[in-house]
């Protein structure tokens, strides 16, 4: 049975796949980044269909609002020549597409005859049901361990990023506040007593 929700789902899924494909095939890096924004946006729409409003809003806020804007800035400022980075991409694309299509066809062949049996749909929920509240409860109780681990992974990401990129240049000049604070007047100002000019 095809209902409205299913139609919308397939529409969004098609847009998602199409924009994801354009992310890797667009020649202009700014276009690729914008297609990625579209992909995130459609993914969040699909989450809305699953009644996960909080996650959908977070996806848009965090990825589209923060990460992608930063990403666009970097792409625009760095002037990277993606065409040079992608040398060989178009040459290997037919082979890659053929292998990918073959794999997709095989996966479809395994699952095709069975998929119709799994028509599970999200349950209808009570009007006062709060997705956000439920998520918060789960994260801080049942999944506290996973939550802590995710925090550790973020910490490691910070350590690794600093370890890999921070370079202390020998010729760089910097201020040392503690030295500045310690400075006394006597270190900087020398009082010289000079004989007054007689003829003034």
């Amino acid at each position: 049975m095809v209902n409205f929700e299913t139609v919308v789902f397939y529409l969004f899924a098609a847009i998602l796949l199409g924009s994801a494909l354009r992310v890797i095939t667009a020649r202009n890096p700014v276009h690729a980044a914008l297609y990625l924004v579209l992909a995130f946006f459609t993914a969040s729409a699909i989450w809305l269909l699953l009644r996960a409003e909080f996650l959908a809003v977070t996806l848009v806020l965090v990825y589209v609002g923060a990460v992608m804007v930063l990403f666009l800035f970097v792409v625009m400022m760095l002037d990277v020549n993606l065409e040079r980075l992608r040398q060989g991409f178009w040459q290997y694309l037919p082979l890659g597409l053929a292998v990918g299509a073959l794999m997709a066809a095989e996966m479809a062949a395994v699952l095709y005859t069975r998929w119709s049996g799994l028509a599970a749909r999200p349950r209808a929920l009570a009007p006062d049901y709060s997705n956000t509240k439920e998520l918060g409860r789960l994260i801080y109780t049942d999944y506290a361990y996973a939550f802590e681990l995710a925090a550790v992974i973020l910490l490691v990401a910070i350590v690794a990023a600093i370890a890999l990129t921070l370079r202390r240049r020998k010729d760089s000049r910097s201020q040392d506040p503690s030295q500045q604070v310690k400075a006394r007047r006597a270190d900087r100002v020398r009082l010289v007593s000079m004989p007054a000019d007689k003829d003034g």
């Binding site: 681990l149 550790v152 890999l164």
Partner: peptide
């Protein structure tokens, strides 16, 4: 004892190893 903790442990391990391989910049 859960796919979730297994995956998070794996990512934690891998992330450290990637960075250690590149430590000699």
């Amino acid at each position: 004892n859960s796919f979730l903790s297994l995956y998070l442990g794996l990512e934690l391990l891998s992330l450290c190893l990637y960075a250690m391989v590149a430590l000699n910049r």
